[in-house]
Design a protein around this nucleic acid. Sequence first.
DNA 1: CAGTGGTCTAGACCACTTT
DNA 2: AAGTGGTCTAGACCACTGA
Lengths: 244, 244
Amino acid sequence: MEMTSAQPVTVGFRPLYRQVKDEFVKRMVDGVWPAGFLLPSEGQLAQEVGVSQGTVRKALDELAGENLLVRQQGRGTFVAQHDEKRILFQFFKLVPDDGIARFPESVVLEASTFPATETEREQLGLGPGTRVARVRRMRAIDDVPMIIETLSLPDAMFPGVTDGPVPNSLYAFYAERYGVTIAHAREKLKAITLNAEDAAILRKPPGHPALMVQRLALSLEAKPVEWRVSLCLTDDAHYLSFMR
Amino acid sequence: MEMTSAQPVTVGFRPLYRQVKDEFVKRMVDGVWPAGFLLPSEGQLAQEVGVSQGTVRKALDELAGENLLVRQQGRGTFVAQHDEKRILFQFFKLVPDDGIARFPESVVLEASTFPATETEREQLGLGPGTRVARVRRMRAIDDVPMIIETLSLPDAMFPGVTDGPVPNSLYAFYAERYGVTIAHAREKLKAITLNAEDAAILRKPPGHPALMVQRLALSLEAKPVEWRVSLCLTDDAHYLSFMR
DNA sequence: CAGTGGTCTAGACCACTTT
DNA sequence: AAGTGGTCTAGACCACTGA
């Protein structure tokens, strides 16, 4: 029996540009390349990691396609930031019926830490007995109440997040204060009718229909980081979804 | 005054690979490359249109990214088809809460042509007095009624579509019988409560909440082709949306 | 085995931005 | 003018498929 001829095990194959991509993601995760950072030029990066410029380019192009980098011809390549424009474009799908997307203001109703519920533990991948920070707030567009939002964060990952004031733009805050970047999210939608308490906050009668949006936000490392349940009025707005 | 020195008008600049891409889309629109068609190899195409293989590749890659082509290593590149798998993945976002996507069956309630309403004319870009074919059907998953769907098609583009039986899988039917390929779609979602008639069909009490999905489907040429309003029960299912 | 798409490289030139 | 990303090319080799 021939011992030396190993079978062609294709098991560990991983394209160079993907390895390069992983390295770049790691730099973002580790904070070496923070939000807004101007990357070295393609040529420099290629020399640095020891591959051709074309391979670096393919890695950067894919990261730009995932909205993690922003490329600007003549200027350079930047780490994406959670500015208002990006959030409106990438994460906020509720649009007034006039078609002009606007950023909602917020009024915090409650912010404190609690023992995680079973749903929170399941969604965020937490063990029993873990604590979460929970924020409940009302959001309005043009001073018209539109959304009641309850969000849960692993307390260990966001220590003291409910101690101070909670800013309106949370994803920029997570990045700046905790070094946690929200990269992607999954939303599940259901139609419900409002109970008396929620209806009062949104100035509608009990039993009024609303859109319930359950969002799980994932970090750069694809770990679940935030669980958010929103009740949205869709009388004068709609949730917009494109299928490419 | 110097008449010969024109300013450097960058007006007509269009990358080669985009022109190649346009040419390939045209071949699909014209039916030269029908659904499921196996394209010539990259090398042949490059020679045919007179560019390098790399340029053809970039065009094909973008088209694959838009789900208009499917590439398979070792096999070749194919024109995308509206098979059940693609529709489930790309166009059908209502998923049972168990997380296992399934294709719904249909029962046609009504199918005929009518003068287009103002909404239909506006959405489909039709002139006054135009006729539309309208189909109303109930859709069920695992024999449980889930959706009431009303769809409108320009009669001129789909002549006689309501004369025969209406198949369950419409997008494959549009492609095969009318040479119309649905490429993309836009959906607007609202929460509503069911009226007595719709509630009876879905076996729920009047006033029960439901998700209203208004879909405008676009052809390869980016023209609006189908207007579809669906009322979906979300008691045991949800609309799933990813944000990349 | 031949043929396909997938990866990787190297180099040239173009368009855009900033100095 | 210098530096950036964007396009285009040509050629080599790899991984996958099917005969």
